[in-house]
Computed example of a mutant assay.
Amino acid sequence: PKFEDESFFQTPRIRYCALSSLENGHNAPITDLYWLPDHFEIDRLGFPTESKDDKNCQLMTAASDNQILFWDTRSKILNQKRKDLDLPMNLEIEKKEDVNKGQFVSGAGKPSSGKGSRLLQHLNTRISIGTEDGQFVYVDWIPQKDSDTNKLTTSKAEWYQSILDGPITAMKRSPFFKDIILVAGGTGFHIWREKVFSGALLQTKSFSKRICDAEWSPTRPGVFFIAKSDGSVDIWDLLDRTHVPILTQSISIHKLTYINCKIMASNQQLIAIGDSMGTLHIMEVPWSLRRIVSGEFQAVKAYLARESDRREFVKQRWDFREEEKRELERQAALKAGLGPPHIPTEDEITFRLRGDYNEFLQFEASILRELGLKDEDDDQPALVAVN
Results as ranks from 00 to 15, higher is better:
Gly339Ser: 04
Arg306Ala: 13
Arg354Ser: 07
Ala157Asn: 07
Ser266Met: 03
Lys110Glu: 14
Val244Glu: 15
Ala18Asn: 08
Arg126Cys: 10
Thr169Leu: 15
Gln203Tyr: 05
Phe363Glu: 15
Leu91Tyr: 02
Lys228Ile: 03
Asn66Thr: 14
Ile259Phe: 07
His122Gln: 11
Gln103Glu: 13
Ile127Ala: 00
Ser7Arg: 15
Leu119Glu: 04
Ile180Cys: 01
Asp378Gln: 10
Glu94His: 14
Ser276Gln: 06
Thr153Asn: 06
Asp377Val: 01
Thr153Cys: 05
Arg193Ile: 06
Lys81His: 12
Ile14His: 11
Gln298Arg: 09
Ile292Thr: 10
Met277Val: 09
Asn358Lys: 02
Tyr34Cys: 14
Ile251Arg: 00
Ala62Met: 12
Ser252Pro: 00
Ser7Gly: 03
Thr279Arg: 01
Gln269Gly: 01
Asp140Arg: 02
Val196Trp: 12
Leu19Phe: 10
Glu194Gly: 03
Phe224Asp: 03
Leu59Ile: 08
Gly107Trp: 02
His122Thr: 14
Thr125Tyr: 00
Lys96Gln: 11
Ser252Glu: 11
Lys209Leu: 06
Trp35His: 14
Pro340Gly: 07
Ser206Val: 06
Pro48Cys: 05
Gly25Glu: 01
Pro175Gln: 04
Gly372Pro: 05
Pro221Ile: 09
Gly107Glu: 08
Leu371Val: 04
Gly116Val: 09
Gly355Thr: 10
Glu284Ser: 08
Asp165Tyr: 03
Trp318Asn: 15
Ile127Cys: 00
Leu69Ala: 04
Thr149Tyr: 10
Ile273Pro: 00
Ile226Val: 05
Arg210Trp: 09
Val139Trp: 05
Asp146Cys: 11
Gly185Lys: 03
Leu238Tyr: 00
Leu36Tyr: 06
Asp43Lys: 00
Gly102Thr: 04
Glu97Arg: 15
Met264Trp: 14
His39Lys: 06
Gln268Lys: 08
Arg317Glu: 15
Leu247Phe: 05
Arg13Ser: 08
Gln331Pro: 03
Gln80Glu: 14
Val384Ala: 08
Leu371Thr: 04
Ala214Asn: 06
Phe104Asp: 11
Glu376Met: 01
Asp5Gly: 07
Gln161Val: 09
Gly337Arg: 03
Pro381Asn: 03
Leu87Ala: 14
Tyr258Glu: 12
Thr345Gly: 15
Gly274Ile: 02
His26Tyr: 04
Leu256Ile: 02
Lys156Gln: 05
Tyr303Ser: 12
Gln67Ser: 14
Arg306Lys: 15
Leu373His: 06
Ser276Pro: 02
Val137Glu: 01
Ile251Leu: 04
Lys374Thr: 00
Cys212Asp: 08
Glu312Cys: 08
Pro1Lys: 11
His243Cys: 10
Ile263Met: 01
Gln316Asp: 10
Asn79Tyr: 07
Leu373Val: 01
Glu132Ser: 07
Phe363Lys: 14
Phe136Pro: 10
Ala365Ser: 05
Phe313Thr: 10
Gly274Cys: 07
Arg330Tyr: 09
Arg311Lys: 12
Ala184Trp: 00
Glu158Met: 12
Arg220Trp: 03
Gln380Met: 13
Leu182Arg: 04
Lys301Ile: 06
Glu296Thr: 06
Lys315Gly: 12
Gln380His: 07
Thr125Trp: 01
